[in-house]
Design a protein around this nucleic acid. Sequence first.
DNA 1: TGTACATCAGTGAACGCGCGTTCACTGATGTAC
DNA 2: TGTACATCAGTGAACGCGCGTTCACTGATGTAC
Lengths: 208, 208
Amino acid sequence: MLRWVNAPLQARSEKTLGKILDAAEKILLEEGLDALTVPRVVKESKTSTGSFYARFDDKMSLLSMLHERACAQTIATAEAGFDPALFEGQSTREIVETFVAFAVKLFGARRSIMNSFSAAFGTDKGFADRRTKTAVAIGQNLMKLLLTRRKDLRHPDPQRAIAMSLRVVTATLEQRNGLQRNALGVRVADDLLIEELGRMILGYLGVK
Amino acid sequence: MLRWVNAPLQARSEKTLGKILDAAEKILLEEGLDALTVPRVVKESKTSTGSFYARFDDKMSLLSMLHERACAQTIATAEAGFDPALFEGQSTREIVETFVAFAVKLFGARRSIMNSFSAAFGTDKGFADRRTKTAVAIGQNLMKLLLTRRKDLRHPDPQRAIAMSLRVVTATLEQRNGLQRNALGVRVADDLLIEELGRMILGYLGVK
DNA sequence: TGTACATCAGTGAACGCGCGTTCACTGATGTAC
DNA sequence: TGTACATCAGTGAACGCGCGTTCACTGATGTAC
């Protein structure tokens, strides 16, 4: 599973690995990918360069591991959150509204680590593959949930429409994060964004 | 206007400046911001480090100038393309469809230079300001055009809806560019994207 | 339980590299008389 | 028109810096008998 690290064999080094990962994640979250240098991680985690390279083959291994963790967590969240059993008795409209609100909160609460990796996507095969895998997994879960309400969707091709909806919602939220609080002059409030995105997606899917 | 360059006084240096800008733009377009180093620009433009620093105070000045040019070009394009006079006699539906198709082509043809700058947005005030200014300008022009058809829009707050539509369309296309050809496993074809985005926005605005 | 030794873990100075930038210099252009 | 000189333009070696990474070393832990 954790293929790119040299697995720790003693509790001591397990702890060091944890400290390194925590520090790296913190730096990534607070200051972005550019600030994530090995000297910085080492300093922040109160370890040493040698310890770092005893755990990771190179800097890329650290990035891969962080990305893998973030992807796995995201997939797990989607699987749990989109479980059809959770929505029994609720209207399709409510499902869509819940999905939108959930997405807004997820992207808004703290900038996802995911966003920090975007710079690496063009270059590296591993990152692109992991990102695709994650997107597909989320898509499949949302799809599975919404297709149980297929008869409530008036869009001629519900499957395509669901994929498109996911794409549009995540893109809008990602962009909003990137722009920091400045898109069209003002940062739109969460409530308003949820309302408008909800309206848009409900209309697009043709929810009765 | 070109505030951050030391203006060339002879035709000779004007030409050198042009070569530097062309090379920089090419590198940015083809290989992204990371590849844009001063040694690289100097080599590609067949000039020299000294020439570079005779024109630009520092590397940031080059980036600012490229960004300024791209923003100005984008604003000019929006002003020309969203001129209400161009759409006389056309239905509101056609306007929206034209807008979406135009946006897809614009982002798709060649990755906009704009996307290359996203990494610098968080850090630098100048970039953020310029980007905001550009977004506002595009928004105002689209707004001016669509508000001439206000009575055709059923959305309770057309102004807000237009701003939201612009945001969603650009975000979706930006994300598509970033993901390179890999979003939900497959890159959606232009035609299909135009169709679905068009359907979504038409429905959202409530075009009759 | 105690001792010897192999392995694991941790340290931090040092290296090579490519970056942004400077600078001493040579050559081209414009200006004054 | 010709000459002298100031200024503009261009060159490329060299500098300092921070990065990713290596390595020789010390200390801690586990294992064998």
